[in-house]
Design a protein around this nucleic acid. Sequence first.
RNA 1: GGGGAGAUACUCAAGCGGUCAACGAGGACGGACUGUAACUCCGUUGGGCAACCUUCGCAGGUUCGAAUCCUGCUCUCCCCA
Length: 433
Amino acid sequence: MAYNFVEELRWRGMVHDIMPETEEMMQKETVTGYIGFDPTADSLHIGSLVQIILLMHLQRAGHRPVALVGGATGMIGDPSGKSAERNLLTQDILEKNIAGVKSVISRFIDFEGGKKKSRALMVNNYDWMKDFGLIDFARDIGKHITVNYMMAKESVKKRVSGEGDGMSFTEFTYQLFQGYDYLHLYETLGCKLQIGGSDQWGNITTGTELIRRKARGKAYALTTPLVTKADGTKFGKTESGNIWLDAHKTSVYQFYQFWVTSTDEDAANWIKIFTFLDQETCQSLIDEHQKDPGYRVLQKRLAEEVTVMVHGREAYDTAVEASKILFSKKVTPEQWGKMDHATLLEIFEGVPQVTIDRSLIKDGVDIVEFCNEITGFLNSNAEVRRALKENSLSINKNKVSAGKMVSEDDVIADNMILLQRGKTTYFLVLLDE
RNA sequence: GGGGAGAUACUCAAGCGGUCAACGAGGACGGACUGUAACUCCGUUGGGCAACCUUCGCAGGUUCGAAUCCUGCUCUCCCCA
């Protein structure tokens, strides 16, 4: 083995629950392990990045990773961690989502080349579920698991006993479907390990139980803790929504910003989870950061590692460049004019922006109208006035006050006006002839 | 099937005929502080410059005047069978 997979995850704080003997088994042999991805959206967000990284670790440790896309299970809806019945996705949406999820995963894991033994596989459980009839399923699978066993699962117990709307038969059955996936992969690929988030433990153990009873085999399980934030809020969400792994949904600039603005505490945890830096490197970064927290080595390195991994070095450089221009006190907007205009545009690609007609500001226009009606930067006149009262509005990094008229004088670098609310909310206005 | 309770802004939650755009808390945003942190402190949080307009489950009604009273509807919860 290239390295001890379990040990590696352990120091990174990525092991929540693990079945006995898993580590020993993985030290002895090349293991095929799988992780399931729910096609609940047409792309994956950084929550799923943890699972992708696990597959990468698996491969690096010399094992064989299998990425399972839940084409079939996605039609049912996993009740784990949900307090209410889920809505079913339509066939078209599901298909679109599956394609999206697949393409994201394949950006990170090489399914083609690689050494034979650890070559990754991508499967879709719809392929083996679609022709599985109800009668056969009931006889071959249902017979091996008791309802009592299924009822004991946390995800079921919560919904059956407590308040809420109860649970449909459909969702109740979910664990059997996922359990069967595991059995199927065990039988066809010799898959002996399933990894997932901590909320998946129940579903995974239904699988190992099924394998034990039906195939008289032994299969293993490992779950990772939920990635948390120090302030207790949900990881991966910002005011503007999820952070996606797709540049069309979350620009590289915003992606980079997400990581670079993480708190000290979060960054120290996340650098272990989201990068492949070794233990000494992580520790020395943490130490270095503590010596001079103001420099934020930790956040910068974390943002670099993750952004480069997800979007590539070039896109990362651009995002850093944009951040430098926007946040560095050394670079004033007046200097932008000296920069190459096309480069400037490229740098600001990920910054929220709008293009307006140049004639609109020819005669000068009140700041209130400019920020609301003309550019849509803020949502109402009242909000602009509020911002003015709070002294939080800036044009080209200079605070403005009520009564300000926006005109040609405010244009920098030929056709740009940089609006700003507070310290971190930027908005770029481009003028069109 | 019978009986009871309730639906208020992003969330929780007051209000029960005028002084209510609606107490309070959380969140969010902003300011000071800083490191594009954390903590703390302060401010803002329907729209309109304003008169004023829209908002308290939905639709009507009573009243000079309703989130507050009446009628119907929809939905939710609890108890008994």
